[in-house]
Design a protein around this nucleic acid. Structure first.
Lengths: 219, 219
DNA sequence: CCCCGCTGTCACCAATCGGTGAGTAGCCGG
DNA sequence: CCGGCTACTCACCGATTGGTGACAGCGGGG
């Protein structure tokens, strides 16, 4: 995840550097996409709009219409870009090779997902967006995110089969739901259902409880 | 003349029904509050503003400033009003009197909360708002909601003590987080982490998995 | 060379937003 | 009957939004 220093609309030409903008469509397109991502990650979807993105990218909004066909196309591009999320989040030591039981696997997966989301503001904002809005625009983005997550889970799971007698799909969905809501609530208000989620110690307690829950179902 | 034609595009349901408005400040205040609640419940927080509330209430926005001191005060009034949520959601057959174990209690609580949230659009919108916004305005509303939930849980719990050796506060917070996210995701996109949440059958599966999870930790 | 196309900029549009000052309309006590 | 209080409406403000048409400047191919 690149966090590029974005030039805010402060004093233009204050220094001796007029920053001659080169005519490079590719670079501009990338700048727009990067601006959109960082804007969404930092400000959330509420103030995410054509004007704001153009302002942050340092170019005219007309270019967003031209290159991406408007906000919808830009959002779609963000979704496509989200595919790289998976690549960056797969630990080197492969998936569940060394994990013997399904419980081992799911426990590790849960903790990894918790940590990944905790450190990924963009993903969090998208998640919040999905929950708060139901437009076509967001539905596509949601689908891309969902697909990325599913792929990630699959890669991590390897070829380990879930135990019989338990609806693993439903249980896992609930565990994931818990993780997502925990992270969202923690990032937004610092707590969830009375449980403080501010300090690393708080998160350790939450992680421990999460482990207990996963172990409770999968042994 | 007074406006009797409230221009809203749908919703024949109970909410703001200002018929034959007389000069009655109390009634107007109530109409505004009702309009605000129904607007928030139906449209979400994204289009929740002074103009929209006034439009739905069928009065001038100036009155909102006068009677509630602006949107903040109105939101606060919604929060206060949320206290009634608890009263309406406590089943007649009292709390955990007939429940022998903590597991019995938590299982029942989880299912009741799941159902309550599923059928309460206003609460869902507030929940989504909390997660997506971090302004003072929403933080107060969040606190009111949180307090209502805590009170509800306490009333339901009765005097049953949680088992030792497990961080019940953390575990319960996670279970609640799962329920909340499940309901939010279901209402918004009809699914969560690949699990479909549309038909009653879908929800039954989710509820069953939820029961397994609660039983897994609390026995 | 000139001209055309691509890149980028700017000005302008209607709509809506939150917010306010001023004015109208009905009721009630004297 | 009237003065004043209160409930209520209206007109307007500046700012910002998404969106579009016109134009400037550079560069490469004829």
């Amino acid at each position: 995840m690149l966090i590029e220093a974005v030039k805010l609309e402060n004093s233009p030409e204050a220094g001796a550097e007029p920053e001659r903008r080169v005519r490079d469509r590719g670079a501009t397109e990338r700048a727009i996409l990067a601006a959109a991502k960082s804007l969404l990650a930092q400000e959330g979807f509420q103030n995410f709009g054509i004007n704001a993105v153009a302002r942050r990218a340092g170019c005219d909004k007309q270019l967003i219409y031209r290159y991406y066909g408007g906000l919808d196309g830009l959002v779609e591009a963000i979704g496509t870009d989200l595919g790289t999320w998976v690549r960056d989040r797969i630990p080197e030591d492969a998936g569940g090779m060394f994990l013997l039981t399904y419980g081992d696997l799911m426990e590790r997966l849960a903790l990894l997902l918790l940590d990944a989301l905790k450190n990924d503001p963009l993903m969090r904002r998208i998640l919040a967006w999905e929950i708060s809005d139901n437009t076509e625009q967001v539905r596509r983005l949601s689908e891309a995110r969902s697909k990325a997550l599913a792929l990630w889970l699959e890669r991590m799971r390897g070829s380990l089969a879930p135990p019989k007698g338990v609806d693993a799909a439903a249980v896992n969905a609930i565990v994931i739901a818990a993780i997502q809501h925990l992270v969202l609530a923690g990032a937004a208000g610092g707590q969830c259902a009375g449980l403080s989620l501010k300090t690393p110690k708080d998160w350790e307690k939450a992680a421990l409880a999460l482990k207990r829950i996963v172990r409770g179902v999968y042994g």
